[in-house]
Design a protein around this nucleic acid. Structure first.
Length: 296
DNA sequence: CCTTGAACCTGGGCGC
DNA sequence: TGCGCCCAGGTTCAAG
């Protein structure tokens, strides 16, 4: 499920149950997800208190007392849910009736919280997600993080930075924005949405947004603003739509979100005054949705 | 270096 | 009820 806004929403949703709680035991129900778990994963994290939940790009970070940090990536289909209360039986509830999907519950974090026992359960049908554990001080140099670009949140991402990254690049904008080395956390949906907002074609070469002096053209400044706005809006929407449900379902935000171009092939463009129709093309093996009429 | 395509997995939707 | 095909929010390799 996750691009940056969804992972951020998951982080916020899990925080009440996890932060300050004791991670009594990490139960691995299979030896691997996308990659094998480290051999000592469970031994290393079990019995530790959880200090805080963080996020970098699409990675969820769980900081433990003692200086280790759990790294979790949700891949394409990963989600977390919280189940409170004691008992060995996992009670089904309205949102998650017991059923077939349970076979994809791969990791169970057994917690001792301020309100009693609880479980945080990681479910991932496709198993493209993965978890690792490392020392907090080694995080920045970890292979997952070493080459990551700037976050599209906060004020670090600016058009001068993107101009430096894009100078001389013939690479299509779609691919350049999807590249985590440029911007950390954008995925297929929000790249399409940001390009639509900016009126820029996904096929346009990234270098054409930079002037001869290596400075960002107006179009790149606008794109930078739109990227930040798209992400901020999505986080805001996820946070509000999930408030009631995050306890049991981290995936809800996505599907309540309505997109302007993503997955709208053949439908009318929503740009005011535009009479175009949303088209779908494939770039580097991924679907791109855009309006050929107003995105140049 | 660049760009593309395949691979990793399961499940849902659609046409027949 | 079934079958086969295509598609899916990500990342990483190998190959051209």
């Amino acid at each position: 499920m996750p691009e940056l806004p969804e992972v951020e929403t998951v982080r916020r949703g899990l925080t009440p149950a996890m932060e300050g709680s004791l991670l009594v035991r990490a139960e691995l129900r299979r030896p691997d997800l996308r990659f094998p778990f480290p051999a000592d994963f469970s031994a290393l994290v079990s019995g530790r208190r959880i200090l805080s939940l963080g996020r970098r790009a699409k990675y969820l970070l769980i900081d433990l007392e003692g200086g280790d940090v759990i790294i979790a990536h949700l891949g394409m289909s990963g989600s977390f849910r919280v189940e409170e209360g004691a008992g060995s039986e996992i009670p089904g509830d309205f949102h998650h009736p017991r059923g077939k999907d349970e076979k994809h519950d791969h990791v169970i974090f057994h917690l001792d919280t301020a309100n009693g026992p609880a479980r945080v359960i990681y479910n991932d049908p496709r198993r493209f997600g993965f978890m690792d554990v490392t020392r907090r001080e080694a995080l920045a140099s970890h292979a997952f993080f070493r080459e990551l670009g700037e976050e599209p949140t906060g004020n670090v991402l600016d058009s001068d930075y993107l101009a430096r990254r894009f100078t001389g690049k013939a690479q299509p904008l779609k691919s350049a924005l999807l590249d985590q080395k440029n911007i950390a956390g954008l995925g297929n949906i929000y790249v399409c949405e940001a390009l639509w907002r900016s009126g820029l074609s996904p096929m346009r070469a990234a270098g054409t947004l930079v002037d001869a002096k290596g400075k960002p053209k107006t179009s790149l400044k606008r794109l930078t603003d739109d990227i930040r706005a798209v992400i901020a809006d999505a986080i805001a929407a996820g946070g509000s739509s999930l408030r009631d449900h995050i306890q049991t379902d981290g995936t809800l935000g996505y599907f309540q979100h309505s997109f302007s171009v993503y997955d709208r092939e053949g439908e009318p463009c929503r740009t005011p005054g535009c009479s175009g129709t949303v088209a779908r093309v494939v770039q580097a093996g991924r679907s791109t949705f855009y309006c050929p009429e107003c995105q140049k």
